[in-house]
Design a protein around this nucleic acid. Sequence first.
DNA 1: TCACCCAACTTAACACTGTTAAGTTAATGG
DNA 2: CCATTAACTTAACAGTGTTAAGTTGGGTGA
Lengths: 214, 214
Amino acid sequence: MGIQERKQREQEELRAKILDAAREMFASEGYDAVTMRKIAEKIEYSPTAIYLHFRDKETLIRELCNHDFLELAKKFQAMGGSIEDPLERLAAAGQAYFEFGVEHPHHYRLMFMIKSPAKPEDFSCMRGNPEEDAYAFLLDAVNDCISAGLFRPEIADAELVAQTCWAAIHGVVSLHIAKGDDEWVEWRPLEKRFSVMMEAVVRGLMRTPDGDGG
Amino acid sequence: MGIQERKQREQEELRAKILDAAREMFASEGYDAVTMRKIAEKIEYSPTAIYLHFRDKETLIRELCNHDFLELAKKFQAMGGSIEDPLERLAAAGQAYFEFGVEHPHHYRLMFMIKSPAKPEDFSCMRGNPEEDAYAFLLDAVNDCISAGLFRPEIADAELVAQTCWAAIHGVVSLHIAKGDDEWVEWRPLEKRFSVMMEAVVRGLMRTPDGDGG
DNA sequence: TCACCCAACTTAACACTGTTAAGTTAATGG
DNA sequence: CCATTAACTTAACAGTGTTAAGTTGGGTGA
């Protein structure tokens, strides 16, 4: 049955070729700049050939980005996975998230700035597992902060806190992506906006102001 | 010259009709759902008639939203314009911004979640005037907070603080709009997410934790 | 070996989109 | 009353994502 295998291998190669072509265009120019016909031209197939491997454009691009959800989780793990101190781990997650967004604005846009019909079951990675789910990583860190008594007593709902931390950094990143070169505002350096946000939110949640001078 | 006047009046009426038709569709279904042909059908003109009043679709929809930038500034003024206490005024601005975003998600999306080529000179309202420029309103409140010595001494750059406050609330609003019904996350109530964010950021900026128990 | 078959792929088209060049029409000023 | 012209329409272009129908070439059973 070597023929079957070869055929399947060829299929997967073409599939990968499509994804590669799409990824390159998408990463540098965004969703609208990727057209089925341009992908087809690039891989030297007809546009319809793509539909033999992907249901539609949405699905194709979404697969690129689902892959990146896992990448994000890996980045969290790499930058903060081995940090014991929960607050430092939380900060590392924030830094990882920030860097990811700044480095991959188009992916970030599709992942976090656009309403998508994707359901959890569309994703391959394990939900709730901090090594594959960035949100779970964040939730873990927050939970550990609460358990360690670092936050004020009224700050006890880990989901709520995680969603707030996420929103804070997302605010900086998404505002940068959407309005970063808007001349209406005299933007301060992006890194400063990030660090001030990070500091303010953490300080706002903490039981005692840390006097060690950050 | 009564005829000239009548003609101009008729032009403006049609222009208004176009905007009204577009507004209704846009507010309820968003940018893509508004097509030139649908507008045309609604107002019982040909699609090309629209181009006699607007350069292109982008310009048309943009005009709707520019109008809303002024509305936002008015809302800031209405909800916080007469508040003396700068911190309360800042909180009122946050509340106004939050409500605006939740009530007009499509407008919000175009105003703050999409990269637009619009330049400051495209806008009719006065930049820097708190009564017409919501960002100026925010900046004013932050400046007054700093002058009143409410913030920690290292928190002295009003622009930086304003951009951080903006990003914080924008994070809550935009995450709600983009991922509000994403089942991956067990979302806490939107109002709670907003109030926790507001409290955390303000507390994080302030010199002394307010002990009056919010 | 050879006809058949079927899977992979292409061609051509559909139904949309925003936009524009060219043509029509009706009201106005002379 | 006629020529002009501004306002508007028709028809088309160049795109888009998507699909029904047709081609073709390699694998397979006889």
